[in-house]
Amino acid sequence: MAESTTRTPTARPWTPSGTAPGRLAWPVAVVAGVALAVLVLPVAALVVRAPWADLPELLARESVLQALVLSFSTATVATAACLVLGVPLAALLARAANWPTLPRRVLRAAVTVPLVLPPVVGGIALLLLLGRRGPIGRVLEEWFGVTVPFTTGAVVLAQVFVALPFLVFAVEGALRSADRRTELAAATLGASRWQVFRFVTLPLVAPGIAAGAVLSFTRALGEFGATITFAGSLPGVTRTLPIASYLAMQSDPDEAIALALLLLAVSVIVLLGLRDRWLPGVRA
């Protein structure tokens, strides 16, 4: 046959001779060890130095419970908001692959900026927009009597600002890697538009949506800079776990450590939950 598409196995990537696989030069190994220590030792110190015996009492404190409830409720609402806002934005971004270069890059940059921006800057920016003298803040106050900064709503807004890009990029990646022809195949098999979405598109991007939601949740839970700038630190209203932990460090280190352990525990649970399914880089 003249035009048969033969599938010959492609040659293995060229490997430099002289380096046996699995063996590192010793300076590389030493530096890698130092790097590992930088990552692991602080967390180990936290676990070792934790006042385990007093932990039940510390975690039962009013201030701790208050921060815990506030953090989990705001992070949950923020994650829900990220899902509602982020999935359509991800769809737009995935579609933008066919756009002209300039608008495509502008759109992508707009989503990326909060990802690389120091959170404090985000907090200041939110304050300038929604504060009493900000263009939107003034309208809200004069017309509706609503003040946003230094409320629980401000905590959620700050969290959405920093967490949304995580969700958008996770979902966008899933949308782009899903083969659109599977949707066409479903249609030829009698699936209506809704059925195509329900039985093909959604299951194919669900892992991306779940990964994005979990990343958004952890990012929202850990939010500090934008929150303290835009929402302050009012106990029970805007004092989330990270802020409470930071403040306690100055008065009652044991309580601060207990709060830090809480946040660490959440991170570990998330890591175990995600593992290799959704974060290919983090195979536990």
Binding site: D179, R181, T182, L184, A185, A186, T188, V200, P203, L204
Partner: peptide
């Protein structure tokens, strides 16, 4: 109309 697509395009999930 039944279609057998190039590369088959089975539902991977």
């Amino acid at each position: 109309i039944g279609v057998v697509f190039q590369d088959y395009v089975l539902f991977p999930h």
